[in-house]
């Protein structure tokens, strides 16, 4: 379709969705007069709704609008604030389809930008996707590329259940081709290799790609990267196919390791036949601690750590 930055891909997805979905509204702060001025001028302030800073009610209202057949994008300022509207996400949004026996859909996106490396401190630099990993019917998107950002956004509005959209601002400027065909809900093999698969999402997937590219520069075609894009539900088929091919799996997760896609994928890989993998899957995850204002990086997966683990696993 076009080469776009990750940031612009999200913007394009929002624009295209507003154009193609006449019953789509956007709810948030500072939208009509600033962040989404153009969209508000094109589609009206009725569909680009500014509200008070009331995240719980914003999500609840999106669910109510969905009861009347509308779709909604709720713009949360950054991911940590998902804790403020946890009730509305879990009790109101995620359960609507189930509670009504499928008579009502909830095609709502809750946009949660990850605000790492911007000096927000421990109440503004978390991801929080793993907080929600055990919530049935709640889709969780964590794009690692412009393509994944665009298509997972578009696809989320076609689902009968809501989606948390974890957009990683730390990779906003990474550019990539947005394909003609949707990859929504599907993992992508973004680097092809022979000996080891790195499975990751968001910034962690970008890290994995950088490791693979560094190694390629040195002539190695060892590392394959599976970028999840959508971390819940998981695209098991792509994960298993790559694991069966390379027989070594490293999972990188940009959050603490106690829950989330990393430990879950580890469990899933146990379903493979005995000795299918040459070694047990390994995980690199964030430290089980909060991230200090002064420097978050020592406690998060890094390029060096991932590269070193790849070398160690292939030794």
């Amino acid at each position: 379709m076009a080469i776009l930055s990750y940031r612009d891909a999200v913007g394009r997805a929002l624009q295209d969705s507003m154009r193609e979905e006449p019953r789509l509204i956007i709810i948030g702060q500072n939208l009509a007069g600033h962040a989404l001025k153009q969209l508000a001028e094109t589609y009206g302030k009725e569909r680009v709704r500014d509200t008070s800073i009331s995240e719980s009610a914003m999500v609840g209202m999106a669910v109510g609008a969905a009861m009347k057949g509308w779709k909604a994008v709720v713009m949360i300022a950054y991911a940590d604030i998902a804790s403020v509207c946890h009730m509305a996400i879990v009790q109101s949004a995620a359960k609507l389809h189930y509670l009504t026996n499928g008579r009502l859909d909830c095609p709502v996106i809750i946009r949660l930008p990850i605000a790492r490396f911007r000096g927000h401190g421990p109440e503004g630099n978390e991801v929080g996707a793993s907080w929600f990993y055990n919530v049935p019917d709640l889709n969780i998107v964590m794009p690692g590329s412009a393509n994944e950002a665009y298509w997972n956004f578009r696809e989320a509005l076609q689902r009968p259940t809501p989606t948390l959209f974890f957009e990683d601002r730390s990779i906003h400027t990474r550019s990539g081709d947005v394909a003609e065909n949707s990859c929504g809900g599907k993992a992508q093999v973004t680097r092809f290799g022979e000996k080891l698969t790195i499975i990751a999402a968001g910034r962690a997937a970008a890290l994995a790609e950088d490791v693979a590219d560094e190694m390629a520069k040195e002539g190695s075609r060892a590392v394959e990267v599976v970028s999840l894009g959508c971390i819940k539900p998981l695209d098991k088929e792509t994960i298993f196919a790559s694991a069966a091919k390379t027989r070594r799996v490293l999972i990188v997760q940009d959050e603490p390791p106690l829950s989330g896609y990393a430990p879950y994928i580890c469990c899933l890989l146990d379903e493979l036949p005995a000795k299918q993998l040459k070694m047990a899957p390994r995980i690199i995850a964030g430290a089980d601690q909060y991230l200090p204002f002064w420097d978050e990086r020592p406690f998060l997966p890094s390029l060096e750590e991932v590269a070193a683990m790849v070398v160690a696993m292939m030794r």
Binding site: M61, A65, M67
Partner: peptide, 27 residues
């Protein structure tokens, strides 16, 4: 609930359904 007849699902979370009612009103 009977959505097609105007009876929407409430919430066990006290007050949670009020925001949903406002969302219906928004639509």
């Amino acid at each position: 609930s009977w959505p097609e007849r105007g009876v929407m699902p409430g919430s066990t979370m006290i007050g949670g359904h009020l925001a949903m009612a406002a969302g219906l009103a928004l639509a």
